[in-house]
Design a protein around this nucleic acid. Structure first.
Lengths: 351, 351
DNA sequence: GCGCGTTACTAACGCGTGTTAGTTACAGAT
DNA sequence: ATCTGTAACTAACACGCGTTAGTAACGCGC
């Protein structure tokens, strides 16, 4: 048994043509004349031999790896509770699959960013990159722009030329907090979803501040806490708020995941949601419809974000300048019960 | 500006040696004598030129892609609510990073398995594979064994030679359900986490049946429902149970994610947990500590599963036959409040 | 002076593909 | 009879690296 790899050479011999012809046929190279009979012979031979071109050789010769990289800028343990990530993965793979691209995923720790994803690029391991969790203090990012590498941010860096897909975090949070204010709350706490070096975290915090300001409510920095991606941090920061002497009747939390940590902390204190403390989150993860009480939150269109970013990246890879390389998708305030706005609605369900 | 890629040739010229020497030095090839001065000159040149070897060329020449594939056998939309996945990703990337491997992720739909991950392998796109969600009816799997491709299952196919890392789903569920029985329950429903073509789903169902049998409780098939990975299916199946005329005082659910859908359904019916219906889940996702009530569940050591599978795969890739290629990790019944076993404990917290 | 082993390298091949520059055969025009 | 053009291919190079087989220089024993 020879057991050697089946190469395009084998296909060529079986079809009685040259290797060049095999390549031309299988890649459907435009502008090349191949007689229908030859074309068929090649295709048949390839199928019968179950020929699959070797990825590395293709990549080397064609200078395209057919892989796009999804880079998560986060501490590894923060991945574990990232409900957003799975939705992104889903949308991303679904979108790139038809074009035959593969997805490589890597986690980059904020501490040492430079060594990491730039190497992926220099090694030509990936053709393009989708970057989740961009930070203000990421200096490797600017290198990306310099070398004009196809990249799309999930999120954004203000005043930069990066292609990105994002939501208007400021406006979305503004709306959410304004909703609390309309319900009569004025002592509204805030827990960010992450350190504010992450652009999304800062933007959401800014939206919170804007809403207060626009409604004539003084900012009380005692009401602000900083989360760190995972549910534990939501739990801890909420306890920290409750243990301090500040009064509050509502809290906005920068992500649903953290919100559930906060909900647990509130309950442990014997307080009721929304009667004692109204809660509003951000993301609308799938669970939030089913939580008790169902969580009022801002719907972040995760699947759409993933799909749009993959589409834009595809265009960049094709060399087209996309018509819109900076996309803001719509969010939507999903009012459920945790904010106290629809108590009657809730009664009916319980009946 | 020449702007050509920096190759090992450039490094060689700068260091005044041959390309071979560069390769020998940078790869630290054992058993080759290179003088310390030369070694240093090469390393310096590489660093100064910021040389990064091209992945495709390395892969082609060395016949190793330095990529491992994580294949998820699931319908795409079921990824969105998979809390288990993020924990796996975390442990996997953490484990393979030190060896310089990358992780490629792909979703394979149960309907067309054959075309998909076998191609990844034939294209030599990946050196090894970690397969999550193996199914009894996956015929592509046996092809893997035939060609002796380095593979590790997350989960297992009974009576096969596959390397795998798993937990004893049957025993774990047996313990969990026995716990309910010890608490006095005899009408215990069951919702599987997935269709029973998935091995884990069938094993968990079997554990449930065993526990009933060992405790002299007759099996009532009216009490069994089949979930499908996502939270919605838990919600639907629980409603289905509650809408039927069967009586029950407890329910075991094959995954925490589904359990929260069930919890919502139970609440919508105006029933209390655990007083009216005790609930036990499976997985111990991070949220389960924080839910209301905190969920009694079986802790599945997700991080350890990921790490061990990555380790075994590394050994397979190195050509070593691992001492133990079939690993069963310990689970642990985590008794919280949703099963009604620790109500006093809960009171204290609420005080 | 020669054989031999060791040290420290290098020339050259091969990995499997994409692609450019040709080549051959043949029909039609001059 | 020669030139031109086109259809249908193919020979040969390039991609950037790992690796095998080989070589030159040198010391050492005799």
């Amino acid at each position: 048994m020879t057991n050697h790899r089946i190469t395009s050479q084998d296909v060529a011999e079986k079809a009685g043509v040259s290797r060049t012809t095999v390549s031309l046929v299988l890649n459907n190279v435009p502008g090349v004349k191949i007689s229908p009979q030859t074309r068929r012979r090649v295709l048949d031979a390839a199928r019968e031999l179950n020929y699959v071109p070797e990825a590395a050789a293709q990549a080397l010769a064609s200078r395209r790896a057919r892989i796009i990289g999804l880079i998560l800028i986060r501490n590894p343990h923060q991945i574990s509770t990232d409900a957003f990530l799975t939705q992104i993965l889903d949308g991303l793979i679904e979108t790139i699959r038809p074009s035959g691209m593969r997805l490589l995923i890597d986690i980059v720790e904020p501490q040492h960013q430079k060594e990491t994803y730039l190497q992926l690029i220099q090694a030509k391991h990936i053709d393009g990159i989708i970057l989740s969790g961009p930070r203000y203090d990421d200096d490797a990012l600017s290198s990306l722009l310099e070398v004009n590498f196809p990249a799309v941010l999930l999120g954004q860096i203000p005043d930069s030329d990066f292609a990105f897909v994002d939501v208007d975090n400021r406006a979305a949070v503004n709306t959410a907090v304004a909703h609390l204010i309309n319900l009569g709350h004025s002592r509204i706490a805030c827990i960010t979803n992450a350190p504010i070096s992450y652009t999304a975290a800062l933007d959401r915090l800014t939206g919170y501040k804007q809403a207060l300001k626009e409604n004539g409510i003084a900012l009380d920095s005692e009401l602000i806490r900083y989360g760190d991606f995972d549910i534990e941090s939501g739990y801890r920061q909420m306890h920290s708020l409750l243990a301090s002497n500040v009064t509050m009747t509502a809290v906005f939390i920068g992500s649903d995941t953290l919100a559930y940590g906060a909900v647990a902390a509130i309950r442990e204190r014997g307080l009721r949601i929304p009667q004692d403390i109204a809660v509003v989150g951000f993301d609308d993860i799938p669970f939030s419809r089913y939580s008790d009480p169902p969580l009022t939150t801002v719907r972040l269109p995760a699947g759409d974000l993933a799909r749009r970013s993959a589409e834009i990246l595809s265009q960049l890879l094709a060399g087209d300048e996309p018509e819109s390389k900076q996309v803001i998708l719509e969010t939507q305030l999903v009012v459920r019960d945790s904010c106290g706005a629809s108590r009657s609605n809730r009664r009916m369900k319980l009946q």
